[in-house]
């Protein structure tokens, strides 16, 4: 595995209070040419994590390497990465086409044809100015730059803010297509987990600044299970497994979510319970509520 991004005990504090702790002792490695979903609730540290990778923020302690180089204020990392969010800023005097032209001069892998195709498919007028665009159109335009620049490290922080569903689907389609034609290491954070789970290969799951989980999506789907049945059967099944969530249903039966290292296909029959795989969205919900020590029904 060739490593693209490596975090070693990275902590980021913006101030002395506990609430200022944005990243709490994070360690992980990301392989080159993967699509990584950065998921978690608001304020869990997703943006800070990506800004540290982009070299915008400096870790308070620990080391970060992007292609073996410390990214903060580093020109090589800046030249090989792009950070796309809804706060991208452009001179107000430039038309969108002129901005694309400028982007082309900066990024050596820039694809003008991809940029043009995307402008058409998002219906962005090239002679408009950035400040004239609606929120969704701004996001679309930022996505054009993010994809056409073909940067080895591409960071999308909530790239679909304001986009309607059709446009979001269009974006995912292009992301997949661009990734396939020019592989790169992509980090993507989104609240629409159910929409992106097909796209993602690995998950970085954040909660309150900590990295809860860094696993392939397939793995998570495989290990997190939903179990339901009568109370005693479910209780028996849960023994020795990591319980993530449990709920008593009105009919007296019990519904639970578990994390298990070695799921057994024959368990359902031997414990006479129903076992189902979870979606990524559900897995994230169950895992994050457990991490936060929540036991109420706020996930619904």
């Amino acid at each position: 595995m060739e490593t693209a991004v490596k975090f070693n005990n990275v902590t980021k504090k913006f101030g002395p209070r506990e609430a200022d702790l944005a990243l709490d002792n994070i360690t992980f490695e990301t392989a080159r040419h993967t699509i990584n979903g950065v998921v978690g609730r608001n304020g869990s540290g997703k943006t800070t994590l990506m800004q540290v990778i982009a070299g915008f923020k400096r870790p308070s302690s620990g080391t970060v390497e992007v292609f073996g180089v410390r990214p903060f204020n580093n020109l090589t990392v800046s030249a090989n990465s792009i950070f796309v969010d809804d706060e991208m800023s452009f001179p107000s005097s430039l038309q969108l086409n002129e901005i694309l032209h400028t982007a082309a001069t900066f990024y050596p892998n820039w694809s003008a044809s991809v940029a043009q195709d995307l402008m058409q498919s998002f219906r962005l007028p090239g002679d408009a100015r950035h400040q004239e665009l609606s929120k969704g159109m701004k996001s679309s335009f930022h996505a054009v730059i993010g994809l056409a620049s073909r940067c080895p490290i591409t960071l999308f922080d909530e790239p679909t803010v304001g986009m309607d569903e059709t446009v979001r689907q269009e974006f995912y389609h292009w992301l997949k297509r661009e990734y396939n034609s020019v592989p790169r290491t992509i980090f993507l954070s989104s609240h629409h987990i159910s929409e992106i789970d097909e796209l993602l290969e690995d998950i970085l799951m954040m909660d309150q600044g900590r990295l809860l989980l860094n696993r392939p999506v397939a793995d998570i789907r495989h290990h997190v299970l939903k179990v339901s049945g009568d109370a005693r059967s479910v209780e028996a099944y849960l023994g020795g497994k990591t319980e993530l969530y449990r709920e008593k249903l009105p009919d007296g039966s019990v519904f639970a979510a578990v994390y298990t290292e070695s799921p057994q296909a024959e368990d359902a029959e031997s414990f006479s319970v129903d076992i189902e795989q979870v979606t990524l969205q559900e897995a994230v919900r169950y895992l994050s509520r457990t991490a936060a020590g929540r036991t109420d029904d706020d996930a619904h």
């Binding site: 090589t76 030249a79 001179p91 107000s92 400028t102 001069t105 900066f106 892998n109 080895p152």
Partner: peptide, 24 residues
């Protein structure tokens, strides 16, 4: 990985500013 030389990026930034700051 693209290796970049600093003067080239400064020149690109300057061009970007000349285009972008025409208001000045």
């Amino acid at each position: 990985m693209t290796h970049i030389n600093t003067p080239a990026i400064i020149a690109k930034q300057l061009k970007y500013k000349i285009r972008g700051f025409s208001g000045m």
